[in-house]
């Protein structure tokens, strides 16, 4: 109990950042589930969403800026798929991966050009940036609402996937393009839908994440993106519940390590963790066996 009491602020921070990783990780895992593609540009989409948040508040009131950021990110995700992945639908998978890496650099360089390389300060969103006290630990409201919002969105997503017609089509397409086509499913729309959902969640994640960490720079997507990716691999890439659980575990471990005064090692931990998973259990917590990994 002492351990929990002493570490409460770190555990809280861990749950919060875990929720933010989860929102990014879902985008990785869903795209992988359908296209068997690791969308390297996903972390940069997250960064662009953050940057858009910085600029949007200078153009419009906050209550419009938030939906604007979300819509902008969704449209961007949709367009990236259309422009960079769809034309390569029948190409070898390696070509699509290279295209994804290209998009990633393109977004980073665009951001570098627009910001001039300066770190931009994320706007303060009233209420969610204010501080509260939970079990004697002082923290921001965003820390508390992140896991709640994350879980709520994940539940909605699971309902969409398991109870609706489009969800059924998504599950079918993720298994077998050709037979799905024979059912009359429009593969391309289902894939677009996947990118739309992934981008939407990344945009929500960016608002929560940058409200906490405030600085947005062109490489700001790299670390959270990588950690979310590790979470997705840990959970078994392709599995949504796996990615969410993986993200929470990584967020919490990372912050407890920080709490022990080993901040410098917290990132190293995540990647050491990735290597161990890949060696010990390459299919992850909930992953299917026998699917080829890229």
């Amino acid at each position: 109990m002492d351990f929990i009491r002493d570490n409460l602020p770190y555990i809280l921070a861990g749950i919060s950042v875990g929720g933010q990783y989860a929102l990014i990780a879902i985008g990785y895992t869903m795209v992988y589930g359908i296209l068997r593609l690791i969308n390297f540009a996903h972390g940069d989409m997250f960064m662009i969403a953050g940057l858009m948040g910085v600029y949007a508040v200078t153009w419009m009131p906050l209550y419009l800026a938030i939906p604007f950021v979300i819509i902008f990110t969704v449209v961007l995700g949709f367009l990236i798929e259309r422009a960079a992945y769809r034309p390569l639908r029948n190409a070898p998978r390696m070509s699509v991966m290279i295209s994804a890496i290209g998009v990633s650099y393109l977004l980073q360089n665009l951001a570098l050009y627009v910001t001039g390389g300066l770190t931009k300060t994320y706007p303060t969103i009233p209420w969610i940036s204010s501080t509260i006290t939970v079990f004697g630990a002082t923290t921001k409201v965003v820390t508390v609402i992140t896991p709640i919002l994350t879980i709520a969105l994940v539940v909605l997503l699971m309902i969409l996937i398991h109870k609706t017609k489009i969800g059924m089509a998504m599950r079918a397409v993720s298994r077998d393009f050709e037979t799905s086509r024979l059912m009359g499913i429009q593969i391309d729309s289902v894939i677009s839908m996947t990118f739309i959902i992934g981008s939407f969640l990344a945009a929500v994640g960016s608002i929560l994440y940058f409200s906490n960490y405030t600085g947005v720079m062109p490489t700001a997507g790299a670390m959270p993106g990588l950690k979310a990716f590790v979470a997705a691999v840990f959970g078994g890439i392709g599995s949504i519940p796996g990615a969410v659980i993986g993200a929470f575990i990584i967020g919490i471990c990372e912050n407890i390590i920080k709490g022990m005064g080993l901040t410098t090692f917290s990132d190293a931990f995540t990647f050491a963790f990735l290597i161990i998973i890949l060696i010990v259990r390459p299919s992850g917590l909930f992953g299917e066996k026998n699917i080829d990994k890229v």
Partner: peptide, 29 residues
Amino acid sequence: VKGGISLTPEGRKVFPDLTVKENLLLGAY
């Protein structure tokens, strides 16, 4: 497919992780 031709593919090709009913409903997509 919309025009009324349906193919039962070689090797069954049912969707393995969907239920029987979901597979049937996909036929009526």
